[in-house]
Design a protein around this nucleic acid. Sequence first.
DNA 1: TCGCGCCACTTAAACGTGTAGGTTGACTGA
DNA 2: TCAGTCAACCTACACGTTTAAGTGGCGCGA
Lengths: 335, 335
Amino acid sequence: MTGTSSGRRVTSADVAREAGVSRATVSYVLNDTPHQKIADATRRRVWEAAARLGYSPSAAARTLRTGRSDIVLGLLPNWPIEHVLGRLIQQLTSAFAEHELTFLVHSSAPPARPLREIWKAVTPAAVLALEEFPESEADAMRAVGIQVVMALHGSVRGEPRPPLVSEEPIGAVQARHLVGKHRRLGYASPDLTRLGALARSRLDGVREVCAELGLPEPDARTVPLEQSGAAEAVKTWLAADPPVTGICAFNDDVAMAVLAALRSLGLRAPQDLAVIGVDDIPGAALAQPPLTSVVRDTDAIARGLARRIVDTLDGKDAPADPIRDPLRVHVRESA
Amino acid sequence: MTGTSSGRRVTSADVAREAGVSRATVSYVLNDTPHQKIADATRRRVWEAAARLGYSPSAAARTLRTGRSDIVLGLLPNWPIEHVLGRLIQQLTSAFAEHELTFLVHSSAPPARPLREIWKAVTPAAVLALEEFPESEADAMRAVGIQVVMALHGSVRGEPRPPLVSEEPIGAVQARHLVGKHRRLGYASPDLTRLGALARSRLDGVREVCAELGLPEPDARTVPLEQSGAAEAVKTWLAADPPVTGICAFNDDVAMAVLAALRSLGLRAPQDLAVIGVDDIPGAALAQPPLTSVVRDTDAIARGLARRIVDTLDGKDAPADPIRDPLRVHVRESA
DNA sequence: TCGCGCCACTTAAACGTGTAGGTTGACTGA
DNA sequence: TCAGTCAACCTACACGTTTAAGTGGCGCGA
């Protein structure tokens, strides 16, 4: 019997009255406050009374008193939210749930409210930034006691710091996959400027591998998500000297554009041009030819980020080392 | 100069002191409470004091006092969050922002916290349910004054009611597009049971159009997202008597599975089997052949839902009629 | 001159918690 | 016997707002 439909909400005072104790005792019992001795019999009485009345504490009052809620606020970038990011959100929700934390997500697409309004409206215990935002804003949050964790770009007190979840390894894995058979690589960047930072990081990973192996710089070109535009890029790659023979694509969508362009030119992957994508979206397996793709272990990322935040909230100063998420190559036919 | 780094937060009492008025006056001015006469000179003093100190009210305290925050909580279904749902979220965020409301999203994937914990942790002004959940839970929310709006299945005080955003029209539009050249239609359902309800609704739309035109019942089959499984379904359709010649797919992913299956069988779309999808994902334009797809106007849906909720919050009892979002067919080659 | 009404405020009571600091009474050791 | 200790609880304040009810002063009509 939880909700009697009477208008008034049941407060800790009601529980206290029902159990024949003071409100403080109720609070001590239900939060089992350390260093507070309460007799077992009393504990039971309080628990039972609370259950009988269907008591659940007012989050607003608790937040007002303690200065923080049990909410972790996730700030999404202005990117398209697709399959992988969606899964990450779900796994973050689960990961935080295991620590009694509520994960809520705010997606900032203009016209949005100023960032301040958002976190002031929530009073979260921590903010997990999946988007980049000004350090000044982060400082403002920290000033009111909110823990701030940035997933991507990072800095600690002005000191730049490797991002918690880094993108370079993705490009590196792509490159390493191709580098056995291909000596000259290309990079297919997305058309969206919003994705620029992400794309640059991944490209850096490709670049590093090439440098390491004494191969020429990867040839990066923007590939729009339609056939004819993509075909231009493909022609340029093939006409280069020496010709590019393997493409690392920013993600599977871009990769599929490259594949479509190849078909339109009467060419084939991987014979004429090998292509490897990222994300392993459902369409990858169904592409012509089936697309080889790098998959990131979002569950590991989610758990890593959640642990980082929980540790910070518990006062352990978090180790600033990046989260290591295993990357896997789902090998199909395109590369 | 917003945040002096001093620890204490700026409260309305500080503003009152600075402006030489009482705390009540500050509240009246900043909220400009109707029917409260405040001299213009005083108003200005308060505003300036507030700005000078960088005052921003404590959401927790306000929520505690008034019983509701300015947060609208979106409850996501357990579906994969992909392109369209992602865009809807972003547009909902913008739509609510225009009404000074903060839209936050909770994605419930098990193991998640019980639903109660979520909305009790937020004290939202309204809940927008994109997932189905028990009516009892909705009643519990309403009991504490939270407005509840369900997007999909709907009921008002026990009376079942057409859903605010309905899925049947999608199937209907697909069918109508095919029905000119095709007399026997098939429906390609997704492999995910979680999407079952959604798929059934869309299929109903197809069914209705067929009935209306005196065509045979559409032949619905589950199409897994890989070639060989999908090929089974395709073979069954083509072997039927009379053979199925046009397929309405649940979404573009499923449609692309059908296209892949056709290719693997040496067949072609639309000659051997026409296919039409839903969502117009980036991959649709790049498929082989390019995929015809139904696009839904998510912006209209977002605005409609936001308006519904804002009206309800303003006390106007909302008209219960569904949101009309224009559907468009992006015609390419597959149908 | 008095009384009434109105403007422009102020006072003070909530909202529901957490928690520091006190207050019992029983028990212990010398 | 009595100061001292400790378990087990309670009193009372603070968190920052909103808002109903009250108050002083001024203008104005009779």
